[in-house]
């Protein structure tokens, strides 16, 4: 792998290999020394044009556990000045010897451009680009699903036979897009639930089943239901009338949660809007994987950083 820009680029075998490697990475957390020397002498740059403390910390932690030198540029701080272009910033970082650049940007395609515009040579890891993709989030979701479902027998397995519903603002969700491609590549059956206004144009052509009513999807025997974060500013753009109506129609209320099967996982990429897309009853239950997702995020990011930055070329030996 030279870059990780989109889960569309991952076939089943590659995805399973990443999940297996993440499992190895997870085991290092149980050791006396939690660091691996794999990226010693390598420089990983976190380039965050969009504020996200949790994702940034997750990547920093992953890179440090692999012994990389980590430089973080945050648009919110003074490092990335307003008005400096993505190109100039990237070239500055490349000149500092970055081997891998983890980029989060509010514009779709920013990571793709860093990788392919010919500005820099470093490996590029997409940490979320606009409303396009967030591949490591989907990988950690897949990892979480696999680990909860198969436990100690996860290694080597895909998600064939698992049924997952993704609920909410699909239109603006890079997490949803990355999950659709990855989970289906891994053999899972994916259901998307959203009001028409929050469905991307042409979503019917995706390899998924579309529902407009949450209760229709919940009546299926789901292995997991993934609630997407609703950004309250969407209300002002008339995507739905009010938070109350959204919660009633598409929120995982305590009543809906009570009707779920006993083994149905409740997932959320965080941060959650309690009382809007998810009730506290669901978020705090033992079936909630929210904290697992955070832990697994570090392992997944270690695996991906290793694959992108450890070798001299992107191709596995």
């Amino acid at each position: 792998m030279k870059h990780l820009l989109s889960t569309r680029d991952l076939d089943r075998a590659t995805a399973v290999r990443i999940l297996d490697l993440a499992e190895d990475m997870a085991h290092t957390a149980d050791r006396e020394v939690k660091k691996l020397p794999a990226l010693r002498g390598r420089t990983v740059v976190n380039l965050f044009f969009e504020d996200s403390t949790r994702t940034r910390l997750s990547f920093e932690s992953a890179a440090k556990r692999l012994s990389a030198d980590v430089i973080t540029f945050s648009a919110k701080g003074s490092s990335v000045s307003k008005g400096e272009s993505l190109k100039d910033t990237a070239q500055t970082l490349a000149a500092m010897g970055a081997d891998a650049i983890v980029v989060r940007h509010p514009d779709s395609g920013a990571a793709h451009q860093l990788a392919h515009a010919g500005w820099i040579d470093a490996a590029v890891l997409n940490a979320g680009d606009g409303t396009h993709e967030h591949p490591t989030q989907a990988l950690l979701d897949a990892y979480t699903l696999r680990a909860r479902h198969f436990g100690a027998h996860s290694r080597g397995r895909d998600l064939a036979g698992l049924r997952v519903a993704i609920v909410g603002d699909i239109l603006h969700s890079r997490v949803a897009r990355s999950n659709v491609w990855l989970l289906t590549a891994l053999g899972a059956e994916v259901h998307l639930v959203a009001p028409r206004t929050l469905q991307p144009h042409g979503m019917q052509s995706w390899p998924v089943t579309v529902h407009e009513h949450l209760d229709d999807a919940l009546s299926l025997a789901l292995d997991a239901v993934m609630m997407l974060r609703i950004q309250t500013e969407r209300m002002h753009a008339a995507f739905f009338p009010s938070a109350r109506e959204y919660a009633r129609e598409w929120g995982l209320t305590a009543e809906r949660f009570a009707r779920l099967g006993p083994d149905t996982m409740v997932m959320h990429p965080g941060p959650m809007n309690r009382g809007l897309e998810i009730s506290s009853a669901a978020a705090d239950s033992s079936r909630s994987t929210v904290l697992d997702q955070v832990t697994n995020g570090v392992s997944i990011r270690m695996a991906v950083l290793y694959l992108l930055a450890a070798g001299s070329s992107g191709e596995p030996a």
Binding site: L21, D24, H27, G311, A317
Partner: peptide, 16 residues
Amino acid sequence: MYRDDLARSATRMPAP
């Protein structure tokens, strides 16, 4: 992950 030639060769897949 402990090899001294990691960066000199194509990415090696670790084993468990």
